[in-house]
Design a binder for these strands. Sequence first.
DNA 1: AGTATGCCGTAACGTACGGTACGGTACGCT
DNA 2: AGCGTACCGTACCGTACGTTACGGCATACT
Lengths: 222, 222
Amino acid sequence: MSSTAQTETVTRTGRDPVARRGEVLDVVLELLAEGRDALTMSAVARRASCSKETLYKWFGDRDGLLTATVQWQASKVRAGAYDSARLDGLTLRASLEAFGVTWLKVISSRTSIALNRVAVAHAGSGKSNLGQIVLANGRFAIGERLKPLLDAARDAGLLVFDDTEATFRTFFGLVGRDVQIRLLLGDKLQMTQAQIMHDAKIATQQFLALYGAGKKTPARGR
Amino acid sequence: MSSTAQTETVTRTGRDPVARRGEVLDVVLELLAEGRDALTMSAVARRASCSKETLYKWFGDRDGLLTATVQWQASKVRAGAYDSARLDGLTLRASLEAFGVTWLKVISSRTSIALNRVAVAHAGSGKSNLGQIVLANGRFAIGERLKPLLDAARDAGLLVFDDTEATFRTFFGLVGRDVQIRLLLGDKLQMTQAQIMHDAKIATQQFLALYGAGKKTPARGR
DNA sequence: AGTATGCCGTAACGTACGGTACGGTACGCT
DNA sequence: AGCGTACCGTACCGTACGTTACGGCATACT
């Protein structure tokens, strides 16, 4: 599990087994993102050049593979926490915008869309908790990462609010708006880098207009 | 096709065939909302007491049935347009809150969640345009219904904004926040009547704080 | 009454796919 | 060299489900 890779147990392909595992999961992400046809165990095995037997030995069943994939993807996305020290209006604004940009990039990425689609579909079928995992690593993870910033900003007298959770949810709504649901439903929505940065900027302006303590930019919505 | 139903062609069950069609589609909605197991043609036929042959004759194939179901549900949701005449700050606020309540009720209803789930799953598989239909009857339909109100409010000097679409999207985000994605992913989120009304009220306050012309309630979040 | 039509119930077909079994091969260990 | 382990490739099995086919019955039409 958490053994530091010192002895490189080289397998047939000349690779360390945990790396191999990662390769397989990357294949799943690939296949999912292409999404031309439903993800099938045989397709994964073929593309990853591994046997189905190995797939089942490693991940148990299809759900296990999916779960591992979601966690694998989540482990790649983790970004560093924003330093809440020496906060002023400008760094707060910049941090909020950065959060917005990060989040918009995530939800508009092909992998995230694909992963959310299978998780949503799965949540319908009741079995397994893929949806919960996606939520925990997406919506809730970013919430937990943003809240310290919000609290610090309140302590610094830059923001005024009671409920951190509710305040975060407002920011979340201002940033995401209808983007995620439209993308999930297959709407052709071009989220360019420029568009994302613009959206994050506007959302931050609006957020500060609602919760900012100072009388900065009035933030009329474009 | 478009013949006005005058001659009531009574079938075996003593029902008019178009009503029978509606019954079948209601069964689909039922099954979908229960969602214990995936929707299957056999299950629909059994529950609706009709033959699979009839299902295929009427709807072509499974996708056709799903499409018809989405449109059937959409046809039931259509609410009347809000009268934009004699607008003042109070009626505007009330109308916005009403919109918010309506929308939150829709997206938190079991049927909507189930329908969106199949549409999202379908959007992944590429085939058919279920996602587009859901979008057209959900997100976009409510947008087209709200925009006249926004424009009227701007004409009446109650709101200040440039881009009606962008303004609507902000309202959409303030109202929906993370609710829809959480519900789609299976999060247990209790959306009681009281909660919905409270959320709509707050969202409206915040929206007016951002776009309102007058200096009404400052709308501090929560 | 006799025939046609529409629909129900059920059986049957084909296929896709999750899951398992098995032979063959490369590598590590002794 | 001989053995065990891990894994690839492929064949195989069982089942679920979309789709089609068919027999039977009730109503509509002449």
